[in-house]
Every structure is written in C-alpha cells, then in structure tokens.
Design a binder for these strands. Structure first.
Length: 211
DNA sequence: CGTTGGATTGGCT
DNA sequence: GCCAATCCAACGC
C-alpha cells in the first residue's frame, strides 16, 4: 500500500498545503469493508486571519476540529443538505484548513454511483458536497485522524507539477476575494462547476513571476 | 429566542 | 443562467 501523507506535511500554512494536495489520493473504508478512493483535483485554502474562514471569529462548537491538531478531517454541514470535508493544517490552536472540492474517482465507482444516484463519472465527486456524499462522509467523520485512523486517510499518490496548477478566487465566498487560494489541476475534466466569484471571474494560471 | 444567510446542488427556464 | 430547497450555527435583541 502506498504511504500516507505525514503529520509534517499537514503542519504548514493552508495555502502551501492546498496545491500540494492535488494529485494525492483520498481513501475511505466503511465499516462493511467497502473501499472508495479518488484523486484530489481541486482544493481551497482557508487561513485564520481570512474573513472567509470559519476560524476567523475564533473557536466555536462547530469549528472545534479546525483548532485541533493538523492531519485531522474537519467536516461541517451547510445549505441544509451538504457536508463539506476539510483537512486541518498548520498547528494545534491555529485554525487553518484546506477544503476538498473535487476528486477524480479511481476506486469503488459503483459504491459512489449508488450513494450519489448518478452514473456519469464526472458527476460523482465534482464538488465539495458531491464528494462527501460519494465517499459517505458526514458528521461522524468530523475529527477523524488521517495519519493513523482506519476510516479515511490520504496517500502520497502522484503529485501534480506546479506548472499544471491553476489558481483563482475561492468559490461561493463573498469576502477574502484578494486571496487566490483556489487550486485546480489545469484542464482537468473532473473539477467542480464552481461558480466564478462576482468581481474577478475565471481562474487564471499562476505564473512564477506573479507569485 | 428569532432572524439571517451560507466554503452547494439539481432541476427548470 | 437562475433559483428554491433545507438545516443549523452565528449573531442580534
């Protein structure tokens, strides 16, 4: 089995971790032994000094996991229907995380189809709510240990070269628009439909001179 | 204790 | 492209 990502990998700022998560594998094993997996093709960074971040206003019952140790799964519920899965980054007490926004399904597609009620491979994990449904992620996985746990973890996979990473403004947020912290694999068919942020529009390719 | 709106999705125009 | 669905955390009174 391929090696998992380590604690030290997660113990860095979210905007550093997020692009490096592209190409990595999320593995989910259910109690019945069913195994589903996907390759991360889209992720967004959230930092504690960032008004779009749940941790911005300090710890609450909902975001407690964000303030726990790095390398855990932060799961929350929104819009009355959808679960969102994040990976906690930086250090304990800091409140930094990366939202998983889209996966390319690579294992257990029939299990994903069953839970999603859809057939097309691009309709299974092409959005933060969709991938949680496809992988069976809900509140019970909030706080799951990605380093040692047996229900969900991240493997090294095949990282995406920096030149193939596109960055842009984060989807669905109305603040923090100055931060280009949405990262996607360029020209990848499995990314979310992602509504463009109001003022800025479509993501742009990040060039070395721009950063 | 009531109100507001959200790190979305799917269906309809 | 637009909008309702649907729940609950956060915040104001």
């Amino acid at each position: 089995m391929m090696a998992r990502l380590s604690r030290s990998f997660f113990s860095r700022p979210a905007p550093t971790v997020a692009p490096e998560l592209l190409g990595r594998t999320v593995v989910r094993v259910e109690e019945n032994g069913a195994r589903v997996a996907g390759r991360i093709v889209e992720a967004e960074a959230y930092e504690p000094d960032d008004p779009a971040c749940h941790a911005f206003r300090g710890p609450t019952a909902r975001n407690a996991t964000m303030f726990g140790p790095p390398g855990r799964l932060y799961v929350y519920f929104t819009y009355g229907n959808h679960w969102m899965a994040n990976v906690v980054t930086r250090g304990k007490g800091e409140g930094s995380a990366v939202l998983l926004r889209a996966l390319e399904p690579i294992e257990g597609l029939n299990e994903m189809r069953r839970r999603r009620g859809r057939e097309g491979p691009t309709e299974l994990c092409s959005g933060p709510g969709k991938l949680c449904q496809a992988l069976g992620i809900d509140r019970s996985l909030d706080g799951a240990d990605l380093i040692r746990g047996r229900v969900i973890w991240l493997e090294e996979g095949r990282p995406v070269e920096p030149h193939a990473v596109v960055s842009g403004t984060r989807v669905g947020v109305s603040v923090g628009l100055d931060r280009q912290w949405r990262f996607v694999v360029a020209d990848h068919p499995f990314v979310s439909r992602g509504r463009p942020g109001p003022p800025t529009g479509r993501p742009r390719v990040s060039t070395p001179s721009t950063r």
